[in-house]
């Protein structure tokens, strides 16, 4: 990465992430996407919860809010509604947004409020040492599923799509340039945009599941990842174990929540004037 981008967008390096962690790739994709956009950087706010992913805000040279576990979307909703001019980006993880913060996630999608939620999904709780999360594949070994994970996982794209998000996509650390482009589309989208970033935790999930090292884990994605287009031609048997990536929803017809609320204000004013 070029040093100008480092000094322009990042502070307090090095990060606390382990070698091979996918979070750095996602963070890089975020700042590269911002660098390619014509945003007023003073109007961009990053909000995060708790977890390895949420630590990302501690390296960003923006207005930042590092909140409580699962609560980033609630805080972000307040920020956005207080000042709709702000571009509010939530950095979160699979445990943070799909487990403890799941309720805030679905309600933000229901409202279609203009937030960009970027989930660094590494299929386990890294900060606490590698326990299973709501996205851990069945059969995986984690610190709390040493006989193999037995809980059915969420597909976060299906979840957010059903809940009403008007932009839903999956990107993968294996395709960093495409990830940057997807994040750019997400940030540009007006309405709730959700990006599930398929990522790795080599130190914990990888080690416990004997997936060798970060490079090996990364190479495994090559066979697992299929595009939406490729998936359309595949049978359900062929799709077993595959991860579909791309933009699932990009809908500009749904009205955004700040705009809906502006109409509420108009109605309230009419009620006192008429």
């Amino acid at each position: 990465m070029n040093n100008d981008i480092y000094s322009k967008y990042l502070v307090k390096l090095p990060t606390m992430w382990c070698p091979g962690c996918g979070n750095g790739i996602v963070l890089q994709a975020i700042i590269r996407s911002i660098d390619e956009m014509d945003l007023d950087l003073d109007k961009v706010v990053f909000v995060s919860g708790i977890g390895c992913s949420s630590r990302a805000v501690n390296y960003l040279n923006f207005d930042c809010m590092h909140t409580n576990h699962g609560r980033a979307i609630a805080f972000a909703t307040g920020i956005k509604m207080a000042n709709p001019e702000l571009k509010v980006i939530v950095l979160t993880g699979d445990g943070d947004c799909a487990s403890i913060g799941g309720n805030h996630l679905i309600h933000a999608c229901r409202r279609n409020i203009d937030l960009t939620i970027i989930c660094m999904n590494n299929s386990n709780y890294g900060m606490t040492g590698g326990q299973y999360s709501p996205t851990t594949p069945i059969g995986s070994i984690t610190k709390t599923s040493i006989y193999g994970s037995y809980e059915p996982p969420f597909d976060l794209c299906d979840l957010t799509k059903s809940a009403g998000a008007s932009f839903v996509a999956r990107a993968a650390t294996y395709y960093p340039v495409q990830m940057k482009n997807i994040i750019k589309n997400a940030i540009n989208h007006k309405g709730l945009s959700f990006v599930d970033c398929a990522s790795d935790c080599p130190s914990l999930y990888g080690r416990l599941n004997r997936l060798s090292d970060a490079a090996n884990m990364m190479s495994l994605w090559k066979d697992r990842l299929v595009t939406i287009k490729q998936a359309e031609t595949m049978s359900s048997e062929q799709l077993q174990g595959k991860v579909i990536w791309g933009e699932f929803v990009n809908n500009n017809d749904r009205e955004e929540y700040c705009d809906i609320y502006a109409r509420n204000i108009s109605k309230a004013k009419e009620s006192i004037n008429g």
């Binding site: 609630a74 920020i79 207080a82």
Partner: peptide, 23 residues
């Protein structure tokens, strides 16, 4: 702005966010 949040956790979260944004 009046916001009916999904629970009280979100309610206080939203007001903290809004306060940081100047309200």
């Amino acid at each position: 702005v009046y916001m009916q949040m999904e629970d009280e956790i979100a309610s206080i979260g939203a007001i903290i966010g809004a306060s940081a944004a100047g309200k």
